[in-house]
Simulated scan of single mutants.
Amino acid sequence: MFRALRQRFEAWVTRGQRPARQPVRLDRRRIYILPTRQGYAFALLLLLLFLWSINYSNSMGFAFTFLLSAVALNSMWRAHNNLLDLVIQPSGAEPVFAGQDAQFGYRLDNPDTGPRHGVALQWRDRSPRYADVPARGSTTVILAVPAERRGRLRPGRLRVLTRFPLGLLQAWSWVEFEQDCLVYPQPRGGRSLPAAMAGGTGSGMGEQGTGSEDYAGFRPYSPGDSPRRIAWRAAARTDRLLVKRFTDQARPELWLDWRLLGMEPIEPRLEQLCQWVLKAEGEGCEYGLRLPGREIPPASGEIQRRRCLEALALFVGGDG
């Protein structure tokens, strides 16, 4: 019940907020403060002390009660100011595979001359990640967000909170950014790499030859091609980078083809293709990827790996 009430209150408070593109500065209108469990217990203790002092007309009891009340009020002021004017800025998140945790980074900037202690970021009901922000400095907090499905993952709304200095009160705010992380399919499957085929429409595994044999025309440039193979004169006429092809260098091409997986469901196909991409890259092969509506020419290297994995992550469609 308490969680449901908290979620309704959060939705009501943040109903006008939109995901931000720029860093967010926490002003007074965005900061809220309430007692913690320890704070409520402390308030009950003050009430009992006050009633005891009235009952026995004890001046020392009154003095002690008012002193503790002043400490609580000062704690409220310090907790609020610990977040006031704090600047939160998101940073990029590296792609992950489905089933892993995406690591979202956030930089906390402190424009004041005093340090900020015990500032935390929290995603949903996970444990807060605390950090201290130096005076006129910054620090970075990393939040782990589960990546359950392929595609683009958005962390959504985050809670910025502090219980500094005594833990009696919690000041908090909410922030949300236009930030996402690319999630690749989970690499799994029981099939081995398909056999390479001679010829084809891609760049081929052997088109990095010397160019001293039978000339076979041009093909579009693909990332990873050697600059020495680029036909600069032809590129100047067509405004496109073209690469020379030679028939004597045409070795078998490795194509990771969607159609090779028959009638399997979409997600198992993508997972098997993902495993093939990683295996082909690990073995140093030049490989291409064929999906319905898209074809990535054969190449190798980190750029090719990222292109293929991104195509698998963002694939939308059915058989083709």
Rank of each mutant, 00 (worst) to 15 (best):
G209M: 11
P115L: 04
G288K: 01
L51E: 00
L121H: 09
L289P: 09
P187T: 00
R149E: 00
G211P: 02
D239T: 09
L46W: 01
E178Y: 00
E213A: 10
D239L: 13
Q103G: 08
Q179D: 07
D101F: 14
R149S: 06
I296C: 08
R107A: 01
E271T: 09
T201G: 12
L314G: 09
A216N: 08
L193Q: 05
E310V: 07
V133K: 00
G39K: 02
R305Q: 15
P111S: 07
G137M: 01
A144I: 12
T36S: 13
A63M: 11
G39H: 10
Y221P: 09
R229Q: 06
G200F: 06
D132K: 01
W258T: 03
P111R: 10
G199E: 01
G16I: 10
L86V: 07
Q122C: 14
L143S: 13
L47S: 10
R150G: 12
A198N: 10
S226C: 11
I296E: 03
K244Y: 00
L161A: 08
N82Y: 05
E253N: 02
M60V: 12
R78Y: 11
R294Q: 15
F177D: 02
R154Q: 07
F164N: 05
D248L: 05
D101A: 14
P297W: 01
P220I: 10
L241W: 11
G204W: 01
V145I: 04
L5D: 09
V243F: 09
V13R: 13
Q304K: 08
E10I: 15
T210F: 05
G189F: 06
S300K: 12
R251I: 05
C181R: 04
S226R: 13
Q122T: 07
T210N: 03
F2I: 10
C274I: 01
V24K: 08
M1Y: 11
Q208G: 14
S127Q: 07
P298D: 10
E286Y: 02
N82A: 11
F50V: 03
Q275R: 09
D257S: 03
D180R: 04
F177P: 00
L193C: 07
R78I: 14
A234Y: 02
R240V: 06
M263E: 02
E253K: 14
Q7R: 15
N74F: 15
R124D: 00
R8F: 09
G200L: 06
G199Y: 05
L254Q: 00
P194T: 08
F62I: 07
D319Q: 13
L158T: 03
R305L: 15
A79F: 05
C181E: 05
L84Y: 12
A11H: 10
Y56V: 06
A311D: 00
D27P: 04
V277L: 09
L46Q: 11
I266T: 13
G156F: 03
R159Q: 08
L67D: 13
S226G: 14
M76L: 15
D112H: 11
A120T: 02
C274F: 07
R259T: 06
A4M: 13
R18A: 15
G199N: 13
G224C: 07
E148G: 12
